[in-house]
Design a protein around this nucleic acid. Structure first.
Lengths: 144, 144
DNA sequence: GTCAGTGCAAACCCTTTGCAGAAAG
DNA sequence: CTTTCTGCAAAGGGTTTGCACTGAC
C-alpha cells in the first residue's frame, strides 16, 4: 500500500455531489454527502474501512454501519462500482465509466486499465433469461 | 443453485489423482487424495463448504480446517483455480485451462466460457517489476 | 524419533442486522 | 407527526490460526 490515507483527502464540491446523488435517486443526507465527496474526490479504489478512516479523519462524522450501508446503496444505484478481486475486502471504485483493472496480488494494489487499451471481442450468447450486467477484465499480477 | 450435492459425487480415479498431486509438488496424503478426487471428479465450481459436505457425505473423512488448508495449497500450486466473484465465498474451479466465466448474480451460478469464445485483445504493458499471473474475464449477469 | 499433516475449537475480520434515537420536512 | 436515516453494539459467516495429536518414513 502507498496511499497517504491519513492526510486530508481531496473532496468533490458539495454542489456537484448533491447533484450526483439526486441524479442517482439518492436522498442527499449529511453523511451521504460526506462519504460521496471523499470517495468521488478523485479516481481511487477504497475499501469501506479505508473510506471510514478518511471521512472521520478529523473527528467522528459517520459510523461504520452507515459507511457500509451507504456504499451498498451507492453501488446499487450505480454511483460507484464494486470491485471484487480480493475475498478479504470489497473495493469501491469512484470511476464508473467502462474500464478494467490490473490487480497486483503481491501488494493488493488495484490499477485502472482504460477501456480502449484492452479489447474484449465477442461475448457468447447469454444463458436464457439473463441480461448482462457488465464485463470485467482483471489482469492479475504479482511482483517479480 | 441446482447441483445435487447430497448425492455421491463422481471421483477421479486414485492413480490419476496421485499423479496430479505429485506433478504439482504436493505430497499425496489420504485427505488430499479425497479432496482432490472429488473436486477434480468433474468440471465444477465448489466452495470450501460445499466440498467439505461432498467429501464427508458418507461419514467424516476430513475436517473443515484441512479442507481450507488443502484448497489453499492446491490453488497455490496450480492444481485448481480460485475464482473470486462473490465476496461471501471463494469458489474453486477444477478446470485450470484458460477460460472465463459468466457469473449470474441473481443465482450465484458460475458458468464457464471457453477461451476461444471470448477474445481479449492486447493487454497494455505491465507496471514495472510485475509479471502477469493470469487474465480473467467475468461477464456478470442477472435474471431478467 | 522426527517432521509434516491433520483435527478441533477458538480467534479473526469484514460485513450485516436489530433496534432505539435523531433528523428532516 | 411521520418517515427515513443513523449509530451502536451484537450477531453472522467464511476463513485462518494455535496447538496437541497422529502417522509416515
Amino acid at each position: 500500500m502507498d496511499s497517504p490515507i491519513s492526510e486530508r483527502p481531496p473532496r468533490m464540491e458539495p454542489a456537484e455531489v448533491t447533484r450526483l446523488l439526486v441524479q442517482h435517486g439518492i436522498a442527499p443526507t449529511q453523511q451521504r454527502l460526506e462519504i460521496a465527496s471523499v470517495l468521488l474526490g478523485r479516481r481511487q479504489h477504497l475499501s469501506a474501512d479505508e473510506l471510514l478512516a478518511l471521512v472521520n479523519g478529523e473527528g467522528p462524522v459517520v459510523s461504520k454501519a452507515t459507511v457500509y450501508n451507504t456504499l451498498n446503496l451507492f453501488a446499487r444505484n450505480g454511483l460507484v462500482r464494486e470491485v471484487i478481486v480480493d475475498p478479504s475486502r470489497v473495493l469501491y471504485d469512484s470511476n464508473t465509466s467502462p474500464h478494467h483493472h490490473f490487480y497486483n496480488q503481491s501488494t493488493g494494489e488495484l490499477m485502472d486499465i482504460e477501456d480502449r487499451h484492452i479489447a474484449v471481442g465477442s461475448v457468447p450468447d447469454l444463458p436464457e433469461g439473463t441480461v448482462m450486467d457488465g464485463v470485467e477484465v482483471i489482469v492479475r499480477l504479482r511482483n517479480e
